[in-house]
Nucleic acid binder design. Sequence first.
DNA 1: CGGTATCCGAGAGGATACTG
DNA 2: CAGTATCCTCTCGGATACCG
Lengths: 131, 131
Amino acid sequence: MKNPDPRQVACAVQLTAVEDAIYVLGGKWKLRIVIALVTGYHRFNELQRAIEGISARVLSTELKSLELNGLVKREVKADQIPVVVEYLPTEYAESLKEVIAVLGNWGLKHKRKITGKDAAPAPGKLTNKGT
Amino acid sequence: MKNPDPRQVACAVQLTAVEDAIYVLGGKWKLRIVIALVTGYHRFNELQRAIEGISARVLSTELKSLELNGLVKREVKADQIPVVVEYLPTEYAESLKEVIAVLGNWGLKHKRKITGKDAAPAPGKLTNKGT
DNA sequence: CGGTATCCGAGAGGATACTG
DNA sequence: CAGTATCCTCTCGGATACCG
């Protein structure tokens, strides 16, 4: 009993959907870690080197979060002598490739648009916080 | 002199591109505001009502940030009696529709995957903080 | 209506050091 | 190598109040 404006319904749906996505992928590092993972970096220190600026503490935390969300699988190769640990992107992580591609494309175009060439402007940082 | 692994190059490119995107679109609210804008909400209080949970202070701040990035245009209709202010998505903001669609889709699928049905799990919040 | 000012807490995430 | 422990800063962003 309302037949609400479909515009509002669509908006609300979009709103919650991206909210969920942001909830899982948000933050400064998560997507970047996924990129490194699917690119082929699997070892802890390898990842830390590939993702410039991330600390061990944060990388560790984020990997756990990604694992909880089924995006990465931690595997310990106990059969190796100096125990090898690998973080492998799950098949599910593949579903993020499109997200990454689209977002990356946009970022690229945007940078070119804002500055004729590159580098970050002063504007609103890009942080995301709690729930 | 190096002919670096193309994999690494591609990864680095992706990395900085999404970093840039996150820089501009990151945070809890920016994308949601854009959604509301393109959906057709243009007035300040209208936006605040459409985007559940956002405070006036934050909405104001975020709108300024989006304006700096050319995603929204603030227009004052001085000819009206009780001065009307409108926030209009720029044409450029249209370029975000794809990002929003892809992200929204993923969020939707993910929610279904994690919980058989809906609602946010305990895992890593989805925060994003300043670069 | 369309905001701004102030106050404030939470927690992301950086730095450094240390362990197995 | 693969992390963990501590500490500490920073700023996001929530609440509330107020203004033209």
